[in-house]
Each structure stands twice: as C-alpha cells, then as structure tokens.
Write a protein that binds this DNA or RNA. Structure first.
Length: 578
DNA sequence: GCCGTTTTCGGCCCGACTGTTTTCAGTCG
C-alpha cells in the first residue's frame, strides 16, 4: 500500500459519503467508491500512472476522476471535495457510525433540525425534537440514545493495521528529512496491541518542533496537527487516528524509546530493578540519582539491568521481567514460522481470485500449505457452494494439485456455517469427503451466552470438524460478537482435539487476546489463519502471530507452524477416528 | 461518474429486515 494511493482513496470515499448525505445520484456515488477500491488494490503508486498518462486505464477511472487525481497530485487538494465540505459539514459523517442511521436519515436530521454533529444530535434527542422528523418514531429515538451512550462510553480505538501503516509512512517521511537522526514507531502500536487508542512516534532531530510539525502536515494522509505545551506534537490523520510525536535526544534514545513503548507496568518494573541497584531510571538515562547516564539504545538498557532485551509485544507487565531475570522467557512463535494458511476463499464463493491464482499467490508468499475453504450454502450473499458445486470445485483442486506437485500442499476444505442450533450446513457424508473442515458462526450473532456456548460446543464436538473459525464472529467496530462461556468451549476443544482459530483479519482478531491467553494456558491447539479473500490478505498473518506472541502461546500448539507431513498426519488421524 | 462491439445513451446488485407507516423508505449485509 502506497501512502499516495491511500490518501486519494480516502478522499474519494469521503466525497462519496458527503454526496450521499447531500442526496446525489446513487450511481455517481458508487463510481467514487469504485475508484477508491481501485486505488486500495493498486500495487504501484498512482503517481506512476499519472506520469505515464495511463490513469484512464485504471478500472473505474474516467475523465472526471482522472482530472481529480491529477489535481490532487499537483496541488495536494481536490477542489470539489473542499467545496463539498463547506456545504455538507464533515462532522455529519460521525452520525453514520450509529446503527440505524444511514445517509438518508442523517440528511433528514440535518435539513429539518440543523443537526451537524454528535453533540447536536444528542441535544435534539434529549429535547424530544427528533421524533418530529418524518421517519423517526419513539423506538428509533430510544435506540439512538442507547447507541450514542455506548458510542461515547467506548474508548476510541483504532485498527492496529491502519496505525502500523500510518506509522511506517510517517517514519519513512521523517527519515528523508535532513536533521532527523532517528524516527521510530513506539507505544502500543510497537507492542502490537490489537486495537489502539493512538499512534506514537519517537523522533530524534535537530529540527525545531514547529518545523517538524509543518513537515508532517505536508504528508498527504495527515489532516491536522499542533505543538503541545509539553513540546510533543499532536496530529490527526484522515481517519481521525490521533498521532503523538515524542521528541528525544539521540544520546538518550534508548530510555526514551523504552518509556514511550511502555506498558506503564513494564516500565515501572524496570524502574524497580534500577532502584534495587541503587540507581534511578528516567527517560533521560540510568545511574545513581543526579548522575544518570544517557542510554542510546534499548539493548544497553536491558543489559545494564541484567536482562535480555525483551520484545515489545511481551512488555505488558504480566510477569515478563521476572521470567527474563530467571532466563525463563517463553519460547515465542517465530515471526517466520507461519507456513500454512488453512482458511482462504476463492472466486467460487466471495474471494477475489481464481483458485489457481490464489495458490500461485500463496506459493509466492512462501507458504508450504494452503487450504481452499469456501463458504457453505447458508452464506447466500457470499455465493456459498452447493454440494454439487463443492464437488465440482474438488475436480479443479485436483487439477491444480497435479500442476503444482509437491511444491505446495493444497488441501480441499470448506468453511461450513455453524447454524444457530450448532448443526452444520453440509451433511456428514459431504464433510467426510473434504481434506479439512473449518466450522464458523456467521449468522445469529446476537444469541445469549448459553445458546451461543451450546452452539459452539456442539460444533466443536462434531466428528468431522477440525477447526472452529473466528469463534465469536466479532467484526470491529460494528459487531461485538457472541458472548461465550470460553472455558466450556476450551474444554470441548481439548476433549475433541479441535483447533480454535485466531482469525488474523485485523477487523476480527478472533480469538481475541483474553480468549487466546486462556486457550494457551489450557493447551488448546491453535490455527492462525488469514481468511484471505485477496492475495494481499496473506500479510494479515502478522497480526495473528503477534497475538500469539503477546499471549505466550506455545509454538508447538500452532498448526500453521507444523511441518506439512505432521499436519497431514494429524488430519488423517482425525479422519480415521471420525 | 463509468462503461461499452447489443455501444456514445441507458444501464449500473439486490433481497431481507425493520420501523414507520397504512403501502413503503431506508438500512444492512
């Protein structure tokens, strides 16, 4: 992903959202969304297409959009968007996040009551004005008040994937600036916290803060920014992600990086170790009080405290310092140990690639095993496979398998829906024909804990099921997912030796952190999958691996790190018992 | 606003559900 493509895509999406609220023609709006999608998928920077006069070759880009892209590349602005934002307040877009409010209802609120943002909506709701608007009844008012309260109670969390992208864009941007000696990602993003409140950067530079600010404001994805009283820079990107830029001297970069990385509990643990030695640890350095020595890198800091360097994703104050002191840090799943994706989709259901192309993409990624697991019939919207089509797909799998030989192991499987009562969406004799079966919940995600737990336990006990996919079915930020008695599910998984999935899609990360920690302690088998629908989705595995490292998952329990022969033996053994 | 050999204008994805209505508009996936 290139920053310039993302910057344009976001602006086209915003144009589409604002036009929709204004009530423009639906197909025009769709054209902007399509153009945004094209830019997201584009491998090369759009600048190259512009330079070569090839913008019109991109799908969904016609004369009008090509002109807007050209304008943005030359001026950093799209005048149509600037004008539109003056007419339709962009704060109205916040209202779209509330369930039940779409563009038409937002327009009605704006036009009849002059509501322009969340506070004015809340005021109007409380003043009883909203039910006067046609289309808004008592139920809607109630629901909106509830949604508003929930929305405000929730700390603003952002996608780690987006924060990491932004972090690397800005770090690259800064490293090209003369006078910037070092720029690094720090804070919760560096620790791979699954959902983050903000992005933190640490910069050592001989450039005054004001100048640094204008350099950062020149980045196409940065929207606003200011220098705080304490000298830090506070910025916000196009998606509303807050970005804190901390400044440090080059000589004390090590301590500054450790303190800004956190967590607070981990840093305090380090300070206690320093105190035990009669020293003082501060962001400026380490040593006897008043004589702290600046420390330029983290390795030196940890060594001075008689510790091995502790990876950021472990620094949560959950016993990692004690473990490190005793030389008993857990053995972590290596970043490059992920060699199998056991959950992927092709164009047979809702994936973007033909089966053959997906296998090629997997092989290019260095995967040694790929399971093709398209949807079952209950997923109409996703074009789920009838039994007949599933069997036809098997023929294609066998052809592709013959082409690839033993370079990559291709498994034919399915992601079969777990129906609300816990039964599965294919009959047993069909499941028996598959190499691997993932069972996942997609529908009826508002069940109560008892119903949902019974449902998942029943699926986990099914003889043909190998993996439970995204067990809660959560989807950030809209769907919290099923409430579950996790211990009951873990017991069932252990008893039947079924693996639970960590779905690495950054919107899912399900199992989540708490669930996974308990699963790891219970010794349940774990499958880290990407649920890839596009070839670039394979990159998601990093989020799953990071989660496994954060929760101290024993690498030997991770199916995706096994040798293909062992995985096959496990699957065969399960089949023979079923 | 884009697209195309049925082509330079007319079509572009749609069905289920919900809440508000009294026959349907808007949301959601």
């Amino acid at each position: 992903m290139h920053a310039i493509n993302l910057a344009l895509a976001r602006r086209f999406e915003r144009l589409a959202d604002l036009l929709e609220i204004r009530g423009d023609e639906a197909y025009k709006i769709r054209a902007y969304r399509r153009a945004a999608e094209t830019l997201y998928q584009l491998h090369e920077p759009v600048t190259r297409y512009a330079e070569e006069g090839r913008l019109r070759e991109l799908p969904g880009i016609g004369p009008a959009l090509a002109r807007k892209i050209q304008e943005f590349l030359e001026t950093g602005e799209i005048s149509a968007l600037t004008r539109l934002q003056r007419e339709v307040p962009p704060t109205l877009l916040d209202l779209l996040h509330l369930p039940g409010l779409g563009p038409a209802k937002v327009r009605a609120l704006w036009k009849t009551l002059g509501i322009t943002d969340l506070p004015s909506l809340e005021a109007a709701l409380r003043a009883g004005k909203v039910h006067q608007v046609p289309g808004f009844g008592a139920r809607t008012v109630d629901r909106l008040l509830k949604a508003l309260a929930e929305f405000q109670a929730r700390p603003p969390e952002h996608l780690l994937a987006h924060a990491r992208d932004m972090g690397s864009f800005l770090v690259q941007w800064l490293r090209d600036v003369p006078g910037v000696h070092r720029a690094e990602i720090t804070g919760p993003v560096r620790r791979w916290v699954p959902f983050v409140p903000h992005l933190d950067l640490l910069v050592a530079a001989s450039v005054p803060p004001g100048e640094l600010l204008s350099i950062l404001l020149g980045h196409p994805l940065v929207e606003t920014g200011r220098v705080q009283d304490d000298g830090r820079l506070e910025l916000r990107d196009l998606e509303g992600l807050p970005i804190m830029v901390h400044l440090a001297g080059e000589a004390s970069f090590g301590t500054a990086w450790a303190v800004t990385t956190g967590s607070v509990a981990h840093w305090q643990g380090l300070q206690r170790l320093a105190e035990a030695k009669g020293w003082h640890l501060s962001p400026q350095g380490l040593g006897p009080v008043g004589e702290e020595t600046p420390i330029p890198d983290e390795e030196t800091l940890y060594t001075a405290l008689d510790l091995p360097w502790i990876p950021p994703e472990l620094r949560e104050g959950r016993g990692e310092i004690e473990a490190a002191r005793q030389g008993a840090l857990p053995s972590l799943l290596p970043w490059d140990a992920w060699k199998a994706d056991l959950h992927t989709h092709t164009r047979w259901s809702d994936g973007a690639l033909d089966l053959r192309d997906l296998v090629t993409a997997a092989w290019k990624r260095g995967l040694r095993v790929i399971a093709i697991t398209d949807h079952s019939p209950a997923q109409h919207v996703a074009n789920g496979l009838s039994v007949e089509r599933l069997r036809k797909q098997r023929e294609e799998v066998e052809k592709v398998r013959a082409e690839w030989g033993d370079r990559i192991l291709i498994l034919h499987g399915a992601e079969v829906d777990i129906l609300p009562d816990g039964s599965l969406d294919y009959p047993d004799e069909v499941l028996a024909e598959l190499d691997i079966v993932i069972a996942s919940p997609h529908m009826a995600l508002r069940q109560d804990a008892q119903e949902a737990t019974q449902r998942l336990v029943r699926a986990a006990s099914h003889p043909w099921v190998d993996i439970i996919g995204h067990p809660r079915g959560r989807m950030w930020p809209r769907r919290p997912g099923l409430p579950l008695d996790m211990d009951a599910l873990l017991r069932a998984a252990l008893e039947h030796q079924v693996a639970l999935e960590v779905n690495s899609n950054p919107h899912r990360l399900d199992l989540g952190e708490e669930d996974l920690r308990r699963a790891a302690q219970a010794g349940v088998l774990i499958a880290i999958n990407t649920d890839a629908h596009h070839p670039h989705d394979f990159a998601y595995h990093l989020f799953g691996v990071a989660l496994a490292r954060r929760t101290w998952v024993d690498p030997t329990l991770v199916l995706n790190a096994w040798e293909p022969e062992r995985l096959m033996a496990w699957l065969r053994e399960r089949k023979s018992r079923a």
